[in-house]
Structure formats: C-alpha cells, structure tokens
Design a protein around this nucleic acid. Structure first.
Lengths: 206, 206
DNA sequence: CGTCAGTACTAGACAGTCTAGTTTTTTCGT
DNA sequence: ACGAAAAAACTAGACTGTCTAGTACTGACG
C-alpha cells in the first residue's frame, strides 16, 4: 500500500458506499436492492455483505457519512464581517449561498430519503437533524450574537433569530422542491428569495 | 339507496379508502400490502381490485382525497378582524392554530408520505402542493392584502408576506418533526414559536 | 343471478447464505 | 531482501425462504 493508493479492501468499501449512496438517493431505501448496489459498485454481493452486515447498517452508514459535508456550510455561516455599511450586502451574499446550497438536487434527494424513512429509522433522522441541521443553526446563532454585541443587530435570542433567518429564506423554496420531483428554481428566483428574506430579517432585527 | 345510507358498493369503497389511508400513513407506500388494506377494510382483495385498478391508482386517490381537509385551514386564514388594537393578539391566535394544525401527527405523516413518494409520483406531490399548500398561502395573502389596505400592515407583496409569515412560524417545528419519528412538541413550545414568529413578523411588516 | 368473502394460485422480486474457484495481501523462513 | 506459502478478500452464480401484486375459483348470501 503506497501513500497515494489505499488497499483493495478499502477501495471496494468506498466503491460500495458510493454506489449505495447514489442508488438510495435515486430510488429510495425500499426501491434499491442489494443486487443493484453490488452491480453498480462492480462488486460481488458477497463483498457487500463482508463490509456491511445488512441493508439497514449500510443505509445508516451512508446517511451518517453525508453529515461530514455539512462542514462547508458551517464554515459559510461562521463569520460575517462586522461592517455596518455592508451588513445588508453581506447577509444577502450569505443568504444566496445558503439557498443555492440547500436547493442542490443531491441535498434535496438526501432530505427526502431521510424524511421518507424517519419512521423506520428514527434515530437516524434525529442524528442527521442534530449533526447537520442544528449544527449550522448554532453556528449562525453565534455569528448573530457577535453582530449583536457589536451593535449591528438587535437580538435578544440569537438562536431564535437564526431560526427566523433560515425560515424566512428556506420555507418556500425547500417545500416546493420537496413536493415536486425536481428543483425547478432559477438562480434569479433564488436571488429574489434571498433579497426579500434578508430585507424582512433586517426590518425585524436591526 | 336511502338518504342516510349509501349503496353497499359505495360503502365498501369508502371502507377501502379509509383503510388504505390509515395503512399508507402508518407504514408507507411500499410497506403496505394490498392484503393489509383488504383485511383492514374487512373486504376481500377482489373487491379492492374491483374499485381500484391497481395499487398506484388507489394511492393517488387517497392522497388527493386528503386535499379536501385543507378547507378548514383555508377558512382559518380567510379572515382577520381589522382591529389595530388587537392585531398582535389576533395574529398570535392565528399563528397558534396554524402551528397546532400543522404539527398534528396525521398531518405530518401525510407530509412524509407524499414527500417520500415525490420521486415515484411527481404529479401527485405537485397537485398536493398546489391544491393544499399554495391555496392556504394565497388565502392568507388576500387577508394580508386587506389588512394592508386598512393601514394595519405595510406590505408591498402580500404573497411574499404570507410566505414569510409561515416561514417564521413553521420552518423549525415542522422540520424537527419531519426528521424525528414523532412530534415531541409541547403546546407550550408551540405557543412560544407562535409568539416569537408573530413578533418578528410585525416588526418587519407593521 | 350478481356480489362478495375466502382462499388458493401465479409469477416475480428480494434479503441473505453458501459453494467453489481466483486474486490479492500478508507472513515468514531463509 | 526475496520468494514461497498461508491467509484473507474477492467473483460468480446458485439457492432458500419469504413476501407481494394481481388473478382465478368456489361457495355462500341476498
């Protein structure tokens, strides 16, 4: 095993994870068979079962693996320049990135996948909410707290303000996307959502 | 067929619809078998297939039937007294009812059911969104428009204001409920969400 | 005689196991 | 360091048991 290459076993494992992620996202938990995954990963079924004891375990693992990708989002909301002049502009930029990220097809598919199976895997939905959703919200709340300290915002409860910020932005576009198969949002529409949401937020919290 | 009693065939039909609704809500589309439905409706499987050509058709029908129940919600938001003194109070009452209605277990189950199958039945999710969701929102927008005309609110785009109102209220509690199996919201929590949401809304739009 | 319950049946899918033979990785004596 | 042998991982596909959509038949009931 060199530095640039993993061992065969590890390679197969990631191939299976990738294939399973793609398959589950596209066809749901029940709609995906272990044979599908094995075929898509170009791996024998036996190998799948060597790495993951059963379908449920495999599913849990691929879902939890996606929480890593939240890091980028956390970084995004971790810091906003304390510039009173450009507050509007800075928040709007954040809002745009927020909206764009959350209306990506893969993100929406993942949301649907988890929600669809929240009954069957309650602990999984809970974990994803805590580690994905709530983590971003807490970071945003801290950021708002700083801005409030510096007198740029008037915020009693930063966590609540973070809730309101995301609610103003996301409720409509995310819902629309959840119920329709595909996103169907132009960048232009998203920008308008961002501008309107930020404007309402600042009216309430500046 | 008397006035108080439907024909036997129609009675069977509604029994099947009720049973299918209950079963699909509880166990999802894939998790519910036609035998389950027949047994729960106390009807033979043949009779199920007499009324509904196949499983997909049955599913589509029970989902679309639930859009009728939105009427109550439409009535709820259709009118708000134009009383400047009590605007806060009236909006808060509306918000409370909104939140309570949308965090009912059956409503959440239905949401999950439709979202889970939005890929498989895209037209169904779309129809439900249009006839359920969007209808309430439009009514609320009209109500806001009236309030704006009477000088109680300062609203440029009533539809956007309705979006913001519901986003402020619902984003967090509905999301939490979607990802966790059960609601887990006390009435007290909901009341606090309602108060905070209305307060932010009025700060932005009064 | 038509409608229905009950039940048996067809045909196919799918999770998970098993076998037999191949390839890769690790171990270890020299 | 080297190469053989042991160990581990892998492939391909058959196989079991179970489940399910949808069909067909039978006998009872009104």
């Amino acid at each position: 095993m060199t530095a640039s290459e993993e061992g065969r076993s590890a390679r197969k494992r990631t191939a299976i994870m990738d294939a399973a992620t793609k398959a589950f996202m596209a066809k749901g938990y029940a709609g995906t068979s272990m044979d599908d995954i094995a075929k898509l990963a170009a791996v024998s079924k036996q190998t799948v079962y060597k790495h993951f004891t059963d379908k449920e375990k495999l599913f849990a693992e691929i879902v939890l693996a996606t929480t890593d990708r939240v890091d980028a989002m956390v970084d995004l909301v971790a810091d906003i320049p304390a510039d009173a002049q450009a507050l509007d502009e800075n928040l709007t930029r954040l809002a745009r990135q927020f909206l764009t990220a959350l209306t990506q097809p893969e993100v929406l598919q993942l949301r649907r996948l988890i929600i669809a199976n929240a009954d069957t895997f309650p602990q999984l939905g809970g974990a994803w909410y805590e580690q994905g959703f709530e983590r971003v919200l807490s970071t945003l709340a801290t950021t708002f707290h700083h801005l409030a300290d510096q007198g740029l915002l008037r915020i009693a409860d930063p966590h609540l303000a973070a809730n309101h910020f995301s609610g103003l932005l996301l409720w409509i576009p995310v819902n629309k996307a959840m119920f329709h198969g595909s996103p169907q949002h132009t960048q232009d529409e998203l920008d308008r959502f961002a501008a309107a949401g930020v404007s309402a937020f600042l009216a309430a919290y500046r």
